[in-house]
């Protein structure tokens, strides 16, 4: 008997009588009067930066003014002509010197300040983790109240890899002192466009 068969047989023998799944519709999950206000308040609290913009040119201006080594900026967004487009074929290890990566987020979540990104938006999975600074473009209309609405929006969509990102990489492992930039980005800037 294989371990699989052994484990499954033991589970079947020992699991209790079937209990029904609860209906998530009964949760009355939190709603906010102003999802943008909530989103930006939370994101700032967890170390992120929120910048409201009217057009994508402002992204270029902002990153040039706030970060150095412009030759090491990359983007996956065609609307940022002055920033180098990410070469999708690149081996992820060559991204280690990326200073700023600018990508799109599909939506943001007001209750926790996170944004949802899949491999379609990052092209190379390591990109939003290995860059020194992460910048994300988000449309104001693409804000949901809570994680239940988030998963309703994701629904049965196909992705190979997806991630909720909420602020810069961080740790508080040394005496609970918060330090931004553990292994991943030291900053996260979300550009919110109306």
């Amino acid at each position: 008997m294989s371990s699989k068969e052994k484990i499954l047989a033991a589970v079947k023998l020992n699991q209790p009588a079937l209990q029904q799944l609860p209906d998530l519709g009964n949760l009355n999950a939190i709603q906010y009067e102003d999802t943008f206000l909530q989103f930006s308040t939370v994101l700032k609290t967890i170390g992120g930066t929120v910048v409201e913009i009217k057009n994508t040119d402002e992204i270029i201006e902002y990153v040039k003014n706030n970060f150095s080594n412009v030759q090491n900026f990359v983007t996956t967004l065609p609307e940022l002509p002055e920033i180098k487009m990410l070469d999708e074929k690149l081996d992820a290890h060559f991204l280690e010197n990326i200073e700023v990566a600018i990508i799109r987020a599909l939506f943001g979540v007001a209750e926790n300040g996170s944004v949802w990104v899949t491999d379609e938006e990052m092209k190379i999975r390591a990109l939003p983790f290995i860059c020194q600074h992460l910048a994300v473009l988000l449309h104001k209309k693409d804000l949901v109240n809570n994680m239940h609405e988030a998963y309703n929006l994701i629904g049965a969509k196909q992705y190979d890899f997806g991630v909720f990102i909420a602020g810069p990489s961080k740790t508080a492992d040394i005496e609970q002192s918060l330090v931004l930039g553990a292994h991943g980005p030291k900053t996260m800037t979300v550009f919110v466009i109306a």
């Binding site: 939370v42 300040g113 997806g162 909720f164 909420a166």
Partner: peptide, 17 residues
């Protein structure tokens, strides 16, 4: 766990690269 609204990364691994 820590009083955070969500961890920085909640990574959904579905298919290998």
């Amino acid at each position: 766990a820590t009083g955070q609204p969500i961890t920085t990364y909640s990574s959904h691994f579905k298919k290998p690269n």
